[in-house]
Design a protein around this nucleic acid. Structure first.
Lengths: 339, 339
DNA sequence: TTGTAAGCGTTATCAA
DNA sequence: TTGATAACGCTTACAA
């Protein structure tokens, strides 16, 4: 493994000069530059990141923290990741998924180690101990998601409010007046405390209230079987509901299965609109779900930009970016049945 | 951020002594050890990995290379990852998902950088340029998967041969004599050249041949819609087939949907057995798929052990471990219809 | 424009 | 049992 010293020797220059051409950090005559580059090529030289990190105090590595060990890494989340990684790479950083760092203590550990330059946090909860840990520390960070009060925090997030408003408007425009909102109500081990759920749910009720309507909240765990069970008894349990907003990607295909099995016609008897979902899962359902696509690719890019900006320009304005989901037509949305 | 020097000063010992207690690398009197540990605690000292890496020439970081930027990170793959990460952490290593290193050149880049101690490779193809690159280099590596001829390579993999044999036996025992095997035949951008497909397909035909039967290969892209289209015309296109072995997790729920839509009763008219799949996806199907579960958790652990053994004991025997999938009952397997 | 040399934080050898 | 000290590979004033 060739070192800078080797390159310098071969190019007959000092080690400093090699560094200058490698990093474009000082002007170098074309001739010397050529010699150095030739030497690097011949030796197959690669900068040793450990040495570089030690000298610069930076590693150009960003950790994406996702509770993958506890929660399932679902289709949408993986898109965030790949998109963010791609963007980071464009900007000269490596973004890696760090699975073993999802409690406050582990975050302390990771950030104080100096191994990484910044942290991108996913699956943020309304009250999130990890965010507190990051705040206390000095490692730059950004959130994909938001806490209860994200003032003073750099974040990018899905615009759940706007998404739900659009979704409800869509349903109301089609004449629906009795609408249910399905999501996982269970404790903080799943989505309960996640900002996503909290914001969407509140907006759902607020928006309906403004139209003089009231909505129903329905609980459903995040797996296809729970969705199916819900679907099977839905008509009996909620006879007046004509449209369902479901924010539970994993349960959604099961839900339509359950409806079909119990003889509930979709969308004739019941419209279903899945929000914050993806093509892959929506097309597993029968009929294919009309859904609102999570802007995973865009948010991934924005998230990467957010954390990299924090690192490279700590004084820049904090990003507070919200991106709504976009409606993708399917076969589960219809007009309210006549009464 | 406290350094060793700070700790040494505070504990009134030399920096070397601090290193000895930190790494348990030389005997130290209980008294001094206590002083040092106290100092570390008081200062909240953490070892700086960059310095350590530079001095030791090791980082204790393992990169899991998965073509996540090209292929979708599916449910089963994420289980591999989380399981491997957990095991690595138990053994004192960090295993991170490295998205931007899936071509030979990038692998050179990554391994020569010295940033990581080892590489765990997923989605291995029969002829895999990445494996060649790793062979040429000196970075320890292990495969989750196999090339055409894996002799001399450390690997753990699904026992596709055994899995398919069991699957076929199951179907034959139920009287099926006309069996189709569904998978994605398309080019190397998807599974085509992956060992998984090649091995399973060959075994499928061999096993049937031994029973004096012949099987049919059927092409289907890896997405739910392709599965559905296939299902919709399956009866017409393959009127004699009574059982389907499908190795295409993403397409499988769509396939049952297509069958149902075209009036093909499962399992009365057609049995379906999905191999190398997972609970999550199998239960999205209606009826729920009988499937053979990919041993993701076990293989993840074994993969982590494999690469860590290569790093810590380069002379140990090369692992050649195969683990078959296990049958999980569902509702899509039945006896062959009487003729 | 290029070179010298002092760090960056650890590890590990060699003495004491 | 402990302490000096020379690496490890790179960056970056400061000098020339």
């Amino acid at each position: 493994m060739a070192t800078m010293q080797d390159v310098a020797r071969r190019a007959q220059v000092s080690i400093a000069t090699v560094s200058f051409v490698l990093n474009n950090t000082k002007p170098v005559t074309a001739a010397t530059r050529d010699r150095v580059e030739a030497a690097m090529a011949e030796l197959g030289y690669r900068r040793n990141p450990a040495g570089s990190a030690l000298a610069r105090g930076r590693t150009d590595i960003i950790a994406l923290l996702y509770p993958a060990l506890q929660r399932q890494l679902h289709a949408t989340a993986t898109r965030f990741f790949t998109s963010a990684a791609e963007r980071a790479s464009e900007r000269g950083f490596s973004l890696v998924l760090w699975p073993a760092a999802n409690e406050a203590a582990q975050i302390d550990e990771l950030t104080r180690s100096g191994l990484i330059d910044g942290v991108l946090l996913m699956e943020v909860q309304l009250e999130d101990a990890r965010v507190d840990a990051l705040r206390r520390g000095s490692t730059p960070f950004a959130l994909i998601g938001r806490t209860q009060d994200p003032t003073g925090l750099p974040f990018v997030d899905i615009d759940f409010e706007q998404t739900v408003v659009s979704a409800v408007e869509e349903l109301v425009a089609r004449g629906h007046t009795d609408i249910a909102f399905v999501y996982d109500h269970s404790g903080p081990t799943t989505l309960h405390a996640y900002g996503a759920i909290a914001r969407a749910s509140r907006t759902f009720h607020d928006t309906l209230a403004q139209s003089g309507l009231t909505g129903t909240s329905v609980d459903c765990r995040e797996n296809p079987r729970a969705g199916r069970r819900l679907g099977e008894t839905f008509r009996d349990d909620f006879p007046d509901v004509t449209a369902v907003l479901i924010m539970n990607e994993l349960a959604s295909p099961g839900f339509t299965t359950g409806l079909r099995r119990s003889g509930t016609a979709v969308p004739e008897d019941l419209s279903v609109l899945s929000i914050v979902s993806s093509e892959t899962v929506a097309s597993m359902s029968d009929p294919e779900l009309t859904f609102m696509r999570a802007p995973a690719v865009e948010l991934g890019r924005l998230g990467a930009d957010a954390i990299i900006d924090r690192i490279t320009a700590p004084d820049s304005a904090l990003p507070h970016t919200l991106v709504p989901c976009e409606l993708v037509p399917g076969s589960t949305l219809g007009d309210a049945p006549a009464r």
